[in-house]
Simulated assay, not measured.
Amino acid sequence: MTDTDDLVEVTSHDELRELLGAPLQRVAEKARTSLHDYDRQWLAASPFCLMSTAGGDGTCDVSPKGDPAGFTLVLDDTTIVIPDRLGNRRADGFHNVIDNPHVGLVYLIPGRGDTLRINGRARLVRDAPFFPRLAVKGRVPVLAMVVEVEEIFYHCSKAFLRSDLWRPESWQPEVVPSRACIAKALESPDQSLEELERYYGPAYAERLYG
């Protein structure tokens, strides 16, 4: 185990502020409590978001959510809906929501460095009049998450610029083992690599909606 006895920890808000400085007033006050028309446009164009949750015991989770652009349904200026799709059935984030309704969402648009952040309180619903509007390829979800917006704001692009995330020339997808190799080593050791390569091959995308 790594020796951490010589770490110099930050243990107070004052110490943290001393290190980082105070935010500009326009930054500190930029959070809003309802959707602007630009927010609606952003949600209509975004095909992907990250959903962060924490359980009643403090256990955290961040889950990616993706669908065709506009998958998040806007019900009104303070309410949005995120449909669930077929997955691995762990549902870690949804289990957290049952115990602790607070969620944080980061919405991305490919090629854009800035992001839209929404924090709020979530409820899980298994049926509602709007469910047909959540269908993709004729598949209506069996579950959706309704989020009451408490805080919404835009985040600047520094992280994306530093990471070169959207620069194709920086992409190196083969630098780590394939998904099939990872599954063979860590999740499905009894299956052959050939079976896993077929499973995660082109047909994988064809099964996204059942």
Rank of each mutant, 00 (worst) to 15 (best):
G201C: 12
A203N: 08
W171H: 15
V175L: 09
D57H: 10
T72N: 07
S192R: 00
P189S: 04
V176L: 14
M1I: 07
Y199R: 15
L7R: 11
K65S: 02
L208R: 13
P141C: 07
L116R: 10
T115I: 08
P68T: 11
D92M: 06
E148I: 00
S163H: 04
V142L: 11
T59N: 06
I98N: 07
E15V: 05
D39F: 03
L7Q: 10
V147P: 05
V142T: 14
Q25T: 15
T4Q: 12
V27C: 03
V176S: 12
M51N: 06
R126P: 00
R121N: 12
R85I: 01
E150M: 01
Y209F: 14
F71I: 03
L20G: 00
L24P: 05
S163P: 03
M145H: 02
A135M: 14
P129G: 05
P141T: 09
E206P: 02
L165A: 05
E206G: 11
P129K: 02
E151F: 02
V106P: 00
D39Y: 05
A31D: 12
G70F: 08
T2R: 13
L105I: 06
G113T: 12
N96Q: 13
M145W: 00
A69Y: 01
I98P: 04
E151Q: 15
P47S: 09
H102I: 04
D99W: 03
Q172F: 01
L105D: 01
V106Q: 09
A22M: 13
L108R: 00
A128L: 02
P173V: 11
L20P: 00
R133H: 11
R179M: 03
G113H: 13
G201W: 11
P23L: 12
D6I: 03
V97A: 00
L75S: 06
C181A: 13
D92L: 07
R198I: 06
L35C: 04
Y107S: 06
P132D: 03
I182K: 06
T11D: 13
R126L: 10
D61T: 10
C60D: 02
E150R: 09
M1N: 09
Q172M: 08
A144E: 05
V8G: 00
G138H: 11
E195K: 01
R32E: 14
E169A: 14
L196V: 05
V106N: 09
L196M: 09
C181L: 05
E174I: 01
R26F: 09
L143S: 05
R90M: 10
F71W: 05
V149H: 01
G66Y: 09
N119D: 13
R139M: 14
P110E: 10
L143W: 02
G210T: 02
T4S: 11
A144K: 05
E206M: 14
K65L: 04
E29R: 09
G55S: 15
T4Y: 15
D39S: 06
Y200V: 07
R89K: 05
T79D: 12
R40D: 08
R32A: 14
D92T: 07
Q191N: 08
D61L: 03
Y204D: 04
S34Q: 15
G56R: 11
V97C: 01
E148T: 13
P68W: 09
P64C: 08
